[in-house]
Structure formats: C-alpha cells, structure tokens
Amino acid sequence: MNINKRYKDRLFCLLFGNEEYKENILSLYNALCNTSHTDVNDIQIYTIDNVIYIEMKNDVSILLDSYLHLWEQQSSYNPNMPLRGMMYFSKMYDRYIIEHSYNIYGSTLIKFPTPRYTVLYNGTSEQPAFMKLRLSDAFIHEDTSGDFEWTANMVNINSGKNDDLLNNCKPLQEYMLLIEAIRQNRSQGMEVEEAVDKAVTYCIDHDILSAFLTKHRAEVIDVCITEYDEQVFVNGIKEEAREEGREEGIKTGRKEGIKEGRKEGIDIGEKKMIFKYVSSGRISLSEGAEDAGMSIDELKEAMSKAGYKVPME
C-alpha cells in the first residue's frame, strides 16, 4: 500500500520520540532500565523516519550510554515482533556504521551499541505482565543452540499489570489514562471522533498531559482517530482474508485457494481504506488513485459502486 510518504506519528511517538519532550524519553528510559540519568542532552534520538507500518510510524529509538534502544507500542499481540525488531536494528546498525565510517571487511573488531528491544503492549486482549518473544520460535526447524536468536521483551502497560513502571514514569501513566478514557467512551457507544475529543477534554480538565494536549490538541485528535482506523483496517484485512480464503478453499478444495483468498482479502481491505480516506478528504483523488494503482476515473467509478462519496477534484 503506497501511502508511506504521508505518514503520521503515533501518539506514543509524539510523547516519547520527540526532541521537544526529551524529559518524557528520559523518564521512560529510567523507569524501564531502573537507572537515574538526569541530563536529557545525553539522549540521541535514533528513530529511522522512513520505516513505518501502513501510514503510521510505529517506533521510537534512542541511543544512550552505548545502548541502542527500540521501543514499540502495540495495541494488539504480535508474535512476529522479534523478526520486525531484528530487521529494524539491522537498518540502525547500518546507519551507525556509515556515520562512523567503519570498515566491516577489515581485521579489526568493530564495537557498536548494545541492543535493547522493548514492546509496550496496551491492547485489550488479556496478556501476561511480561513476555519474552524469541525469533527461534518461528524457525521451521527447531534450533535450541541459541546461535541464532533475537528477542523482544513485551511489557504489558495496562492497569494492574506493571503499575510500578507506570508510577515511575508519569508521562506513560498519563498516556494510558488518556487511552483508557477513549476506550471508556467507546464502550458507552460514542463514535470514535466524539470518544477521542471528549477524552482529550477530560484529560486537559483533570491535569492529565494537560500542557501537551492543550498545545497539540488538533494533532492528537487526528492521530488517535487514525490509529483507531488503522486498527479497524488491520482487523478487517485479517477477517476478510480468512473469509475469502475459506470460501475459495471450499470451492476448489485446494490449498492454493486459501492463498489466493488471503491475497484478495488484503487487496479489498486496502482499497476500502483508500476509498474512506479520499471520501473524507484526508488524501486527494490523485493520491488515492496512485495508492490504489488505478486511474482517477477508475477510482471514481470504484468508489461510487462501493457507496463512497466521490469528492470534486
């Protein structure tokens, strides 16, 4: 889905991956690592801007005290985080080698920062307080040697799971209070836009991230709505892929039917999200046509048939 060039930060990245809020970064670092660093100038933000998922950046990386940290906030359990982390770290190490003009083909051992990979889980499905995810769990042939391993430490930041961590990092605690307020509003039947707006207002009124939310209110609301849409989009792809694969598999009685069904489900889910974004004005007709691999006229026709409002050019 070719919409990567128009990415947004996640709310988590706005709070913990921004030069303007290095105090938040340092607070989370100290809480996670049980340290007591005090100088925000020691932090080097190392996030790679063009590594994103759908249209949202989904990571924060920092370099501090010769440790290279990657933090990812996840609202759904994903057992593939070790693989994603390994791929991301390879890009960061490549950058590090280039920046320092190291020769990896020489006879001198190159020293580089020690990796630390943390997944901060705040989804609604029940998960343990802490889980170590291992790349070796995905190997087709079991390998217990430990020679080829990459791990992700998943920390559950929902209330009641790691309260000490939240108590030691006020910005993270207040971030979760905002997320919980949005969920509470949604559970009461509010549409996502209203649920987010009322949660932001509540937090400002109750001194929860108040300065941050007051300054960035419009951006925060937009990002939260987009995050919700992204989650619905991903869930929709999974469900449609399963259904399409199931129906095709029944018709043909072949395993290939499931594979084709999964691909078709993904194509349908992506195009529906593009239709929604074009209809709401988030992206233009020309941008939507490019993302969908269609001409503008084809996009208009497809949107009209699917029941979406077609904006004027």
Score class of each variant (00 low, 15 high):
residue 302 A to W: 07
residue 304 S to D: 09
residue 170 K to R: 07
residue 245 G to A: 04
residue 205 D to N: 13
residue 311 P to S: 03
residue 235 N to R: 13
residue 252 T to C: 13
residue 222 D to C: 12
residue 192 V to T: 03
residue 308 Y to Q: 09
residue 211 A to G: 10
residue 180 E to N: 00
residue 37 H to T: 05
residue 207 D to R: 02
residue 294 M to E: 06
residue 135 L to K: 03
residue 278 V to Y: 03
residue 49 D to I: 08
residue 197 D to I: 12
residue 279 S to R: 10
residue 53 Y to P: 06
residue 260 E to S: 10
residue 98 I to C: 15
residue 177 L to V: 01
residue 250 I to Y: 04
residue 130 F to N: 08
residue 294 M to P: 04
residue 84 R to N: 09
residue 126 E to V: 01
residue 113 P to Q: 05
residue 181 A to K: 01
residue 142 E to Y: 06
residue 14 L to Y: 05
residue 157 I to K: 10
residue 84 R to G: 12
residue 52 I to F: 14
residue 186 R to Y: 02
residue 165 L to D: 00
residue 150 W to S: 09
residue 238 K to V: 12
residue 87 M to H: 05
residue 96 Y to D: 03
residue 277 Y to P: 07
residue 147 D to N: 13
residue 261 G to W: 09
residue 228 Y to H: 13
residue 196 V to G: 01
residue 2 N to M: 15
residue 143 D to A: 11
residue 261 G to I: 07
residue 40 V to M: 10
residue 25 I to P: 00
residue 256 E to V: 10
residue 28 L to W: 01
residue 44 Q to W: 04
residue 257 G to I: 02
residue 274 I to N: 00
residue 265 G to E: 04
residue 178 L to W: 04
residue 196 V to S: 04
residue 194 E to N: 12
residue 79 P to Q: 08
residue 125 S to F: 06
residue 55 E to F: 14
residue 75 S to E: 05
residue 219 E to N: 12
residue 159 S to I: 06
residue 150 W to L: 14
residue 100 H to D: 07
residue 218 A to Q: 13
residue 249 G to F: 04
residue 213 L to W: 01
residue 76 S to P: 01
residue 221 I to F: 14
residue 298 E to V: 05
residue 48 I to A: 12
residue 129 A to I: 04
residue 38 T to I: 04
residue 218 A to W: 08
residue 287 E to V: 11
residue 282 R to P: 00
residue 167 N to D: 05
residue 186 R to I: 02
residue 224 C to N: 06
residue 57 K to Y: 03
residue 35 T to P: 01
residue 263 K to F: 06
residue 243 E to H: 13
residue 26 L to P: 00
residue 307 G to A: 11
